[in-house]
Design a protein around this nucleic acid. Structure first.
Lengths: 354, 354
DNA sequence: TTAAATAACGGTTACGTACCCGAAATAGAT
DNA sequence: ATCTATTTCGGGTACGTAACCGTTATTTAA
């Protein structure tokens, strides 16, 4: 079974010749359109199989003037957090890369704090008939409804940043939340002694539905349990995302407990850092998430010791490329692609790429 | 100055029409071939400028049957270390991605311990006239000679894994050695107390010329100096890369000094781990480099605490893509692309991509 | 002045695929 | 058997660019 390296320039023309039919007929079976008898269809398929025919993508995309339309349905960058700037940049990067090959990407932004804005944008996506969708399924039920509509229209869709299992998505690209919390605990354990009290801080308007926050905390606690560390773990939920609320809450908790390290389960860690700096508290190590500008600032100044990051930009990039590879090269894509769990410190942040 | 979004389908035909010349003439000035008067040439160039003409890559690569030949000149995977398997995989990955667009990559392997094998392979590259070269310039002088030959032939070349500055390479893609040693020291500092003795281990046949090893040690020491830590830093150079030599050396050093942590400056850290395990030494933390199978084994079992890694696979991938983007899309590429300095632990290694 | 060489350019085909349009073959209806 | 549908298929053009080859205009040499 030797490879036919140099012989791999078989095209529809050769297939047509061997099958004693015209190019048009071959084209019909390739795109399994109607108008071909079963007999010739089988014959042509056999030849395609035998020759291991690979369509020339260049010629294909050149000939078919149609350009593929992708939709990216993600949260808008808000004043609250510019986290979503990163995935957006990844999407833009992918767009630049595959635009020459006839792909266009339309972005649809919704408000993370407003379910209805998601629904509205989702409807717009369906109206502008697109061939592929990338979305951040933050609102579970609404997302389920949306992807069902996609399924009916045979539109493939990929999830990024958080997953909804068993929804027939083309794939999920994002973090393993539990394990990132687990790693967070590992890092914290470097910074405390046994029996030191540790504080977990959740800052989110919708803590109960935000699986991000919940699963990370779960992983965090699991680490201490698994490693038989008996540090006491205090926890505080802060449901208002403005600085003053965070501050008020922290003052109360730190007064009640002699905390030796703080773990913040999301990117709002900069609020905590802000408070620690303001209160001139220097002996409480701080670990949090995400490569945001403010967070990096506190990392540089030493207020934050570790940031855990999961390449949000690459998530956007890979999400688009998954659609592209599936639709254009029709290659198979991994159902789940967990992003690496990166550890950012003062010493390596300048080399990090989100 | 509004973008001409929908109007971006100007081709040579339109240019020819506006310039009152034939398509062929336009083609001549685009590829600045001879046979065009200065006057018409200028006119056509002006129109190209004005219309912001972007050649259609699909049509271009389809029409010009010529396929670009790239050469990858890297060390062979040896029994000593399979480090170079990773860059090779990255190269193969890039190859698969751009093969449909008419790029072929020939791999040339040399023996890291044999300069002459490098020279020989380099000559072969020059004979098989290629359009772009990716190389690991391990042997400085020989590499300089080679890239000079490339320059004469107008062949662009990129360095990976280690750099030789001021050699007009298209770019360098690889680690910042000094900073990775610096980070290594930071990690070690988590594992020791002040005044603990720390051991630096260099394992390499050519320590004096291996800037990898040297610059990392430099960065390592700098961290302790910068942070006013007065841990004593012992250092041992092991110039034989077999396990027994390493073991003998370690026994001697550990007997003379009361070492509290070990930092190995390259991927041979598994030898040290092997010894620590064999000797049943469990209280000496170990930090080293690279995501190799043996290293990961010791990371899992807890003998190695941290691995620092710089995505060798991605280095290969990006190196090829730099050539591709330069030659096919003629886009500008960054002169230097430092890889992120990744921290691998027991908790996140499964998600790491080399 | 004429032939020859060179410069400047146009016509045309080819690349591999998509798809329209019409022709031939077959089937069905009367 | 004749006529109309329908199925099945081939011819041909288009996509945007590359490059060969031939033609005309211009210059140089003899």
């Amino acid at each position: 079974m030797k490879k036919n390296k140099d012989k791999e320039l078989v095209g529809v023309k050769e297939i047509a010749r061997r099958a004693n039919v015209s190019i048009a007929t071959v084209d019909r079976v390739i795109h399994n359109r109607t108008g071909v008898s079963v007999k010739t269809k089988d014959k042509i398929n056999a030849i395609i199989e035998e020759l291991n025919y690979q369509p020339n993508i260049l010629a294909r995309r050149l000939a078919s003037k149609k350009i593929l339309q992708f939709a990216a349905l993600i949260p808008a960058v808000s004043e609250e957090t510019d986290y979503w700037e990163a995935p957006l940049n990844g999407i833009i990067q992918a767009e630049a890369e595959i635009k020459p090959y006839g792909i266009n990407i339309e972005k649809y932004f919704f408000d993370q704090n407003d379910r209805s804005s998601f629904v509205k944008q989702a409807e717009t996506v369906l109206e502008n008939n697109v061939q592929g969708v990338l979305l951040a399924p933050m609102f579970i039920e609404e997302s389920k409804a949306f992807v069902e509509a996609c399924q009916q229209r045979q539109i493939p869709y990929v999830f990024i940043n958080s997953d909804i299992p068993n929804q027939n998505s083309l794939c999920y690209i994002g973090p393993h939340l539990y394990r990132s919390g687990y790693l967070g605990a590992h890092l914290v354990s470097f910074l405390v002694n046994s029996n030191d009290k540790v504080l977990v801080v959740n800052i989110s308007k919708e803590i109960d539905t935000e699986h991000h926050v919940l699963r990370k905390e779960e992983g965090f606690r699991a680490y201490f349990a698994d490693n038989k560390k008996n540090n006491e773990i205090i926890k505080t939920d802060i449901r208002e995302t403005d600085y003053l609320s965070v501050k008020r809450n922290l003052i109360a908790v730190l007064k009640d407990h002699h905390i030796k390290a703080i773990f913040v389960t999301n990117s709002r860690v900069s609020f905590v850092a802000h408070y620690l700096q303001e209160a001139n508290i220097k002996d409480i190590p701080l670990v949090g998430f995400d490569f945001l500008k403010e967070n990096i600032g506190y990392l540089k100044s030493g207020v934050i010791d570790f940031l855990i990051c999961q390449k949000p930009q690459e998530q956007g990039y890979r999400g688009i490329m998954a659609l592209y590879n599936f639709l254009v090269h029709d290659s198979v894509v991994d159902k789940i692609y967990f992003m690496p769990i990166d550890i950012i410190t003062k010493e390596n942040y300048e080399f990090y790429r989100n």
